[in-house]
Amino acid sequence: MVYKIRDKETGKVYEVTIDEETNEITVYDVKTGKPVKTVNMTIEELKEAGYEVEPV
């Protein structure tokens, strides 16, 4: 599923895909559409880390 996340401190917005089964999150560069990095976190962990998470 695709989400937009926003860093509450910097205001930067990222587009991510989240595999609900493995909790693998792939972060994409919004301008190029290319993957930047992959992390292993849940949506709740993202929120605790200071991100706003919205489904696209």
Score class of each variant (00 low, 15 high):
M1G: 10
M1P: 14
V2I: 14
V2T: 11
V2S: 12
Y3S: 02
Y3H: 05
Y3D: 00
K4V: 13
K4S: 05
R6A: 04
R6C: 09
D7Q: 07
D7W: 04
E9N: 12
E9Y: 14
E9H: 13
E9A: 14
T10M: 02
T10K: 02
G11F: 03
G11C: 06
G11N: 06
K12S: 08
K12P: 00
V13H: 05
V13R: 03
Y14H: 02
Y14A: 01
Y14I: 03
E15S: 13
E15V: 15
V16W: 04
V16M: 14
T17L: 09
T17I: 11
D19R: 07
D19K: 07
D19N: 15
E20I: 13
E20D: 09
E20V: 12
E20C: 12
E21P: 04
E21K: 13
T22C: 10
T22W: 05
N23C: 08
E24A: 10
I25Q: 01
T26A: 03
V27K: 01
V27Q: 03
Y28H: 06
Y28T: 05
Y28C: 06
D29W: 06
V30Q: 11
V30E: 13
K31E: 15
K31M: 14
T32V: 03
G33R: 07
G33N: 06
K34W: 10
K34F: 11
V36H: 05
V36P: 01
V36Y: 11
K37S: 08
V39I: 14
V39Y: 15
V39M: 14
N40D: 05
N40A: 11
N40S: 12
M41L: 08
M41G: 09
M41N: 03
T42M: 02
I43G: 01
I43E: 02
E44F: 10
E44R: 10
E45V: 05
L46T: 00
L46D: 00
L46C: 05
K47P: 02
K47T: 08
E48M: 13
A49W: 11
A49H: 11
G50L: 04
G50Y: 06
G50V: 03
Y51D: 01
Y51K: 01
E52R: 03
E52A: 06
E54H: 08
E54R: 05
E54N: 07
P55A: 12
P55I: 11
V56L: 12
